[in-house]
Nucleic acid binder design. Structure first.
Length: 158
DNA sequence: GCCAACGTTGGC
DNA sequence: GCCAACGTTGGC
């Protein structure tokens, strides 16, 4: 089972929004970046675990966990002419953009801030650090293990 | 609000 | 297919 990090702006759609959805489940759509799309389409699997990261806020942090509860499928917003994410170059035969459904799993008592991550030598290779703008990114098993360990203790190592 | 980093577009 | 111009993301 793989781990991912999905980035979102809490003002637009944060973990608290996911938690309030029916079945605590929502479609993770409107991703319009090829690298992120490739992960979503080709590698994200039903049952994978997702770290939810809040960007554009204070402090930016991983705030909780979600679970992937669908296989990847074509993002309906690309076919919706009224959507900002409508893509005239896409077609149902050859969809360009993909999405998955995710279900709320856990909200961390102590969010893991970006500076926590940057301060940890073990996490210096995280995609979040190396490639700050990517909105869907893989998290390695060892990175995930450390992050999950931190969430189980009140205080992070300095 | 600024700006660095990065992605996308389009002329050639 | 290159690269300059432009647009967007996201930390600070």
């Amino acid at each position: 089972m793989a781990y991912w990090l999905f980035k979102t702006e809490p003002d637009v759609f944060g973990l608290h929004h996911l938690k309030q959805k029916p079945e605590q489940t929502a479609r993770w759509d409107e991703v319009r970046n090829y690298q992120a799309r490739n992960f979503l389409r080709d590698q994200v699997k039903f049952g994978d675990t997702v770290f939810i990261y809040h960007s554009q806020c204070k402090p930016t942090a991983i705030v909780g966990l979600a679970e992937v509860v669908s296989a990847p499928y074509p993002d309906p917003s690309q076919f919706d002419q009224t959507s900002d994410y409508f893509d005239a170059k896409s077609s149902t035969e050859k969809p360009k953009w993909f999405c998955v459904d995710i279900r709320f799993e856990q909200e961390f008592l102590h969010p893991i801030t970006l500076s926590d991550i940057k301060n940890a030598p073990e996490l210096s290779n995280m995609v979040l650090v190396k490639q700050g703008r990517l909105s869907v990114q893989p998290v390695t098993q060892s990175e995930a293990k450390l992050l999950l360990k931190w969430t189980k203790q009140a205080k992070k190592p300095a």
